[in-house]
């Protein structure tokens, strides 16, 4: 059994235009884009937003990482699709269209966040949060959590190896049994995390933690003229889209739905019934 790290949101050092932007600019981008995405339930506008984000992945040269990480979301996508198609309220005449737009919504959100986390160094993020008046202790906690993800992943793998070697089978049994199976992983992991936290606190205190009222930083974030240009562009786009959505109203083509014969609800119900029978749930 192997644990694979969640690579979609892992920072990779690269030398691109986007990587050089101030984290605050990118944070602004993530927040406004997410708000925009959540304004739409119609398929066409969501797809347009999604497609508009893709070129940024090319600029940041993370398209390959993104495609690889999308594989990790296939299961989630299938679940969203099935739930929305088969359990949508009876008054929704276009469940498949709705399901598709929910999927593109998810993809657009994931892509936006992936763009952020892959291009912003976690230390810079912490720094940005301090600049945005968050207390240093909080931003420190966030970067430290991030710092210890690989360490904990490695440790979890070592515990899994040790326990499997004693004959523990994590994947065996029904659902409840499987949850119980994980106790031999979770207890040692938890205890070791507590021990590590203690050691970390000792090390921090040994490096003058809390000495000065006002802490200084080796790197100070600095907004460049380019950051301001980007922020203005993001703002204009955001206001325009909101204006179209709520004041002008969406044009008819934006409300396009799949033709009724492509709606999967009836076929799907039959498939689902078959699966349920098969599994004897």
């Amino acid at each position: 059994m192997m644990l694979s790290p969640l690579s979609a949101f892992e920072f990779k050092r690269k030398n691109t235009f986007i990587h050089h932007l101030d984290p605050r600019t990118l944070l602004y981008f993530v927040i406004l884009t997410s708000i925009l995405i959540l304004q739409f339930q119609q398929l066409i506008p969501v797809v347009i937003i999604f497609v508009a984000i893709i070129p940024l992945l090319f600029v940041a040269r993370i398209i390959r990482e993104w495609i690889v990480s999308l594989k990790g979301f296939i299961f989630l996508i299938l679940i969203i699709f099935f739930i929305n198609v088969f359990f949508s309220p009876a008054n929704n005449p276009h469940p498949t269209t709705f399901a598709l737009s929910m999927i593109f919504r998810l993809l657009a959100l994931v892509t936006t966040f992936a763009l952020f986390f892959q291009t912003v160094h976690p230390d810079d993020l912490g720094q940005a949060l301090v600049k945005l008046r968050m207390p240093y202790e909080f931003s420190w906690a966030i970067t430290t959590a991030y710092r210890y993800v690989p360490t904990l992943a490695k440790e979890a793998q070592q515990i899994i190896d040790a326990q499997m070697s004693r004959g523990i089978e994590f994947q065996k049994g029904n659902f409840l049994k499987r949850i119980r199976n994980y106790i031999p992983l979770i207890v040692p992991l938890f205890i070791s995390a507590i021990k590590r936290a203690w050691k970390l606190a000792e090390a921090m205190d040994s490096k003058a933690w809390g000495a000065a009222k006002k802490r200084t930083f080796l790197y100070e974030l600095q907004m460049s003229p380019m950051d301001y240009v980007i922020i203005i562009i993001i703002t204009i786009v955001f206001i325009s889209v909101i204006y179209v959505r709520y004041i002008l109203g969406l044009p008819a083509w934006a409300e396009w739905t799949l033709p009724p014969e492509l709606e999967l609800k009836e076929i799907g119900k039959w498939i689902l019934g078959y699966i349920v029978n098969f599994l004897q749930l």
């Binding site: 976690p122 590590r196 090390a203 490096k207 000495a211 080796l218 790197y219």
Partner: peptide, 26 residues
């Protein structure tokens, strides 16, 4: 245990941790 005393995400920032705590000029 080296893993438990390195708290920053890069070597450089880890070394800067102490002097930063002292509030020294950059």
């Amino acid at each position: 245990d080296p893993e438990s005393q390195l708290m920053a995400l890069t070597v450089e920032r880890d070394i800067a941790f102490g002097p930063e705590n002292l509030g020294l000029p950059r």
